[in-house]
Structures are given as structure tokens and as C-alpha cells.
Write a protein that binds this DNA or RNA. Sequence first.
RNA 1: GGCGCCGUACCCAAGUGGUAAGGGAGAGGUCUGCAAAACCUUUAUGCACCGGUUCGAAUCCGGUCGGCGCCUCCA
Length: 466
Amino acid sequence: MDLKLFNTMGRELQTFKPVQPNKVGIYACGPTVYNNAHVGNLRTFIMVDILRRVMELAGYEVKLVMNITDVGHLSSDADDGEDKMEASAREKKMTVWDIAEYYTKAFFDDTSSLNIIKPSVTCKATDHIDSMINLVKRLEEKGFTYEAGGNVYFDISKFPDYGKLAKLNLDDLQAGSRIVVDKYKKNPHDFVLWFTQSKYENHAMLWDSPWGKGYPGWHIECSAMSMEYLGDTFDIHCGGIDLIPVHHTNEIAQSEAATGVKWVNYWVHGEFLVTPKGKMSKSTGDFMTIKGLIEQGFDPLDYRYFCLTGHYSSQLQFSLDAMESAQNARKSLMQKIQTMREKTGGFPQGFNGDLSAHYNSFVENAMNNLNMPRCLGDMWNLIRDDSISDEEKLYTIKKMDAVFGLSLDKEPVKLDLDGEIQKLVDDRTTARKNKDWARADEIRDKLLDMGIVLEDTPQGVRWKKK
RNA sequence: GGCGCCGUACCCAAGUGGUAAGGGAGAGGUCUGCAAAACCUUUAUGCACCGGUUCGAAUCCGGUCGGCGCCUCCA
């Protein structure tokens, strides 16, 4: 079956054709590690994770490369503002290097709590400065650059297709409508490849280069590292939708100018997580983190489930109500699975015969531009279908979960009831046998206060944490 | 000013020409000593509004209203 993806380049649904048979190379723009990621950032990484899992479902061997932006990026324009990482470091009295490491770890803690599979290659920008310098040199040799005011700029007038991805119409853009244009630029859309001039003093991250001591421009790391690990032309580049007009546009220009060949075949962009006030962002203070969700009583996987209920290419409305709805749905899902595995003795190792139409529909929907909301619907329809045995359901669910990544086969946490609680449960069972309902209900209420919920099933009493 | 997206039930959300997936919440019921859980049933003659194209439109076209994003680093 063909896998179809919406390619931002061309803005249409296209059948995926790999550069190399049965293999797929994916580059994902990773985090800038100067702060905790918020759940909006994380939505994009869940999307990338779904993409790689669907690729695996389709039988491809996946090589996923993700960068860690640990070189400080400016908080505003080139001639203004300070390094985000330095600002953060000063606040926390740590060196920039410490803080990068700290937030890199925090990022991977978040992603692993969301069941996001680690990329095949994770590359730090600061480990690849030489590659970036070499790339800038190549651009310089080919005449795509100029030096001004101490910095090396990319000259977009030398690259005819500039802005194609974003469908930019350079004449109509109000350059500088919100910021002051760098006076050294020949064209407002030219961008810096290498900085030696920085407005702020004592920049902590500096490297020697042919143009002087300095640091790389914002976009060069992704071009340098993606080509280093995936080759001059690779299959898929993904990231958030906000990266289209500037970051990815500039990456394409510098990459293709350097190699002279097409750089990326498919561009996949994830839409924003939004709140009633607009997009979730750190700068407005209107954001939520994984830690925050946990404090609100959610499991990170509730958030993953929530993300799967919306299509990656559409904005998704974040709210605590929506989170609660996802939490309830996931709880109920786990409960149904638990009931089935208790009845059948667990997930079967294999299954003889063809799987139901629900599974076929699931695969079709996954292959159709990663339509997870539909896939989730397929799973619910499967669970509800009386004509299918519990064994087949469990087997199918496990296969589906390879894409969902919801740990649906996870054993529920067995509570170690301490002696006192166990005694209460036993007392209640005795009371019920003697039809002493008042006593039984009294014990049930007491346990509820202790956070233990009881369920009476034909197989006996079952308990779980509230 | 330019580019782009969106408006589907109480809430979240699929569906982009063939007669409205799924989940949550609510309601009714079965079961149960009662609860809980589970299971069943139920909730949009209509998809912002007004026109048009079509045998047929939530889906295509034009317009109106409303919301949002980008043009600055941003997932």
C-alpha cells in the first residue's frame, strides 16, 4: 500500500518514494535547550515519532536524525538582544554549557515519558562547528556570500528559488515591519552564516574560523548536520509549521546552493497547539509543561493520547477539559483491555487467520498522511465489535499500539496493599457475605478516603488507586 | 499591506463531491444488596451565514461575518 504524505513543498498529498529502496532518512529540527519544552513544542515531536512509527509499519528501515541546538540563538534580531542560553544561565548561575546539558536531559526525560522513540542519531550543534565552517567555505567559494560589518552573509539574490517552500513573495513582504533591518544586509532577507560581531560582551561560545573568532548563524547547523548524516539529498525533513518561512527557507537556500542538488524530497510540518488566546508560547507565558500536567494529575500518556485525537496538520485546541476527556478515554481503554486480558489470559503471541477489516482500515488511515484520529476510531470500533474474539482484539490492539505508542500492553500497576488495607478489604468481603451492608459500605467509604477504589466483579473484589 | 489557515453536536475532533468516524460529557436501560466497573441504547434532516455550480455539496466557486497564524527567534 502506498504511503501518502502532505508535502509542504508544492502543498499537496504525494505518494512517498524513498531515495533508497526500503530505507527512509528523516531529519527533525530538534529543541533549543535553554528552557523546558512546553507541550506545544512536544506536540511536534510526537508527530515526528508517529511519522517514524508509520514508516516502520510500512516496512521501511528508519534513520531519524535530530539536532540539539545548544549554540545560543539570539532572542531577537542579529544586532540586538542577548543570547537566550546566556540569559538563562545567568538566571540560574550556571555556565551555558551546564545549562545546555541540563535542558537536553530534561527534554529527553519529557520525550521518553511520552513514549517517543529516541532518534537514531542525536547531534549537538556544538560538536559540529567544523562541518558548519566547511559548509560556509563552500558557499563562499561558489560566490553565494559576502562579508559586511564583520559577519558573513548569504546573498539570496544568487539563489533564484529563494522562498519557494514558503511561497514568499519578496516584494510584498514588509521587511522590517516588526524589527529593524540589519544595515549591513544587501537584501533584508539575506541572513548571517557566521558571526564575528556580537553586540553583547563576553559571549561564552566562540570558535575560531577563517572569518575570525565567532559563532555560526542560526540556520547552518541543520544543513551541515543533516547532510553529514543523511547525505546531500534525503527523504524527509520535518518540524513545526513556524519554521517554514525563515528557518527552512534559509536552510534550503544554503544547502542547495552548496551542493547544487535537491536537498529534501518531502517536507512535513506539524501545526500548532493553540489555546483560546492563540498559539501556545513561552514568551506570552501562556503555556503548559509535562511537569505541569503531572501536577494537575495527568499521565504524560494522556497528553500523547490527546495529540492523537487531532490531525498533525491541523491546529489542536488545548485545554484542561480536553485533557480530562483524553484521560478518561485512555483510562477506559486500558480498563477494557485489562478486562479482556483477564478473560483470555493475556496478549496472544500470534494469531491464525486474517485480521478484521478494522485493522485494514487502520493501516489505510495511518498510510493516508498519518490520520491518527481515524486510526483511534478504528481501534474503538474493533473493541466494540461483537463478531471478533477477545484474542483477536488483543492481538490487533498490540499491533496498532506499535504506531500509537500508548503502552497499551502495560500491566496495570499492582498495588501493594499494606496489611491494614488488606485487612479492611477482607473485613468488607466478610461483611458482604453476612449481608451486613452498612458495615461493608462503611469500609468502602473509608478505603475511598485512603484513595482506594473497589470494584466487585464476578471473580471477586478488585481494587485500584483513585 | 502581503501570504496562509480555520469556523462540524454540550466539549474535543475526523470527514474535502454521494448523503455526518471516533472519544469525552449528559440521559435512559441491563447487571448489582447499593455503588463502582462493564455492557446496551441515546444525543447534528444538518456542518458560521448568503448566493452559485451539480442529479447530488460540510466538501467545489463567489461573497459576508467571526477567529487565528506568519512576514522577528519560535514546535
